[in-house]
Write a protein that binds this DNA or RNA. Structure first.
Lengths: 116, 116
DNA sequence: ATTACATATACGAATTTAATGATATAAACC
DNA sequence: GGTTTATATCATTAAATTCGTATATGTAAT
């Protein structure tokens, strides 16, 4: 889907598709656009973690973290694996990692490089 | 800011900074995570557009679009230029474009390449 | 089978966000 | 000055999100 020119697009089937894609993307972004959930994903980018580890990291209540994780699961940003009583979370796919990397480059890299 | 290991980070100044960055990023993502606003930004990625053009494209009410644009202005994702009665909007900086490009790659490119 | 531990879910209250209709500002034109 | 055009803001309401408390589920250990 190339970014089409305004003139070409109005009322076209491409517009419909573009709107559909925007809806999908905004759904994913809604899941991302929350301070704690974004932090959770950043930590998971490092590798899989248990819920307890994530709770300790965020310093938030168990039910709060669990609900945030549930949201990330529903929007398919993370997947889980059970080992005994413990459930390990990790990023669901490379798409999530791509978006996170872009966010990371914009918001975090400048710090490291002493720019900004 | 490298993604630090969990062990290294707890209670550290880096954690504080990481949280601050997450807050900044999630603020920007909140502005992005709205179907119409995302579409507006995609259109603006093509080049500057007047409010009227944007309204026509989205097919939404004038006040609705204007408020969405106001939100994007407040979060510094777009800038404006006045020419007579007309106000032209465009993307505010390369950071916005980077994030948009990543979203575009994930959600729109697969269509073009006949994948997915 | 009871208990403890790790995690998930249900429900309600408080807050935030979005859309609408109405009104305001600012420039251009007569 | 009065009107039209382009855009912005305000106020209200409706809807969605978030977080807290409480409770439930699943696994393991005793």
């Amino acid at each position: 889907m190339p970014l089409p020119k305004l003139k070409e697009i109005e009322g076209s089937a491409e517009l419909e598709q573009m709107i559909e894609k925007a809806r999908e993307a905004s759904d994913m972004l809604k899941a991302l656009s929350h301070e704690s959930r974004l932090l959770l994903l950043c930590i998971l980018a490092e590798g899989e973690k248990s819920v307890t580890e994530l709770e300790q990291f965020l310093g938030e209540r168990q039910s709060t973290v669990s609900q945030q994780l549930a949201r990330l699961r529903l929007d398919r940003l993370v997947t889980t694996r059970r080992d005994g009583k413990t459930i390990y979370y990790s990023l669901a796919n490379e798409d999530v990692r791509k978006i996170l990397t872009a966010i990371y480059d914009v918001f975090c890299e400048p710090v490291r490089r002493r720019r900004r």
